[in-house]
Design a protein around this nucleic acid. Structure first.
Lengths: 160, 160
DNA sequence: AATGCAATGTTATAACATTGCATTTGTGCC
DNA sequence: GGCACAAATGCAATGTTATAACATTGCATT
């Protein structure tokens, strides 16, 4: 079988993400939560996957270091990271992405490319505030800080 | 285990949806596609499910009339309906809903309530133009004039 | 009849996610 | 240190959602 695991970039020359990881750890601690080893490893994998990762691909990676890892291992870590605002789930693709923006109080737009399934996080104050205002006026409310929108990515736009 | 099948209302006094189904059939025909019996039955079930349906609940219903039905039976019908713009999948919920609006030339927002799955159309020039501008600047492009957003509806906001 | 083609039937399996319970680990307290 | 408690993890099984792969049917055309 030897299915290759797609999409996650190989190990960096060195801890390119260490800073971000350390920040994440600090922000967890500040909230009384702890970024344990497993969670940190999952977050690191997310950081290396700019376009999102599937849970079972994460699992395969995690298993390299922890042969005993099972689906709950990964899903629990993901749940934690999402709770902490450090990651997002892209519903329609069952894809997980790290949040690229510091404190995640502001909702972000996620552009999901219907062609290549790549995910781009776009933080646009103007759009989001216009959106929030309109929703509020209509009596609606965003349910999650992740607003997914289907939009062709630059690559797929140009290929077309 | 006799799981009860939730959510789909019982047969109407009479063909309350016949009109809509006939319109759907006509619009398929106009595009050279055909709304076959199975597809029509699935669409009818969707029409009766204002809050959206899960694929396997649909399957259970379809099986009442067609004992041989299997997952592909339903998924193929759903794929077809989505292709034809007659239905949508709500990503995060794995829920399918009938499309309640005619086809649109002007982009508009569709608010899908994650609680009750109700769909509201919101036409907000300002939001849409802000969105289009931001996307264009980032090199992306909307793939369809219907932009679906997950947001709690007024009812569910107040119940919470 | 032979062919072509779209739809459907049939079986199996892939892909995604959760439950339940046992065990270990971390932390505050004596 | 040793204890109690909560949090986190290990692990097996299962549940849920979706597709692959291939066979068959039915109908229109030649």
């Amino acid at each position: 079988m030897t299915a290759s695991i797609p999409d996650i970039q190989s190990v960096q020359p060195c801890g390119a993400n260490t800073e971000a990881l350390d920040r994440a750890e600090a922000s967890c601690r500040a909230r009384g939560a702890s970024l344990t080893a497993i969670r940190r490893e999952v977050l690191e994998l997310l950081y290396r996957s700019p376009t999102g990762v599937k849970a079972y691909d994460l699992l395969a990676r995690i298993k390299e270091a922890r042969p005993g890892a099972s689906p709950p291992t990964v899903y629990r870590a993901l749940d934690f990271l999402i709770e902490q605002g450090l990651a997002h789930k892209i519903g329609r693709m069952n894809l997980f992405v790290a949040c690229r923006h510091a404190s995640h109080q502001i909702p972000s737009l996620f552009l999901v490319c219907p062609k290549c399934s790549g995910v781009t996080e776009l933080q646009e104050q103007s759009v989001m505030s216009a959106l929030s205002t309109s929703l509020a006026e209509a009596g609606h409310r965003l349910e999650s800080p992740e607003v997914e929108i289907s939009a062709l990515c630059p690559k797929c736009v140009s290929v077309q």
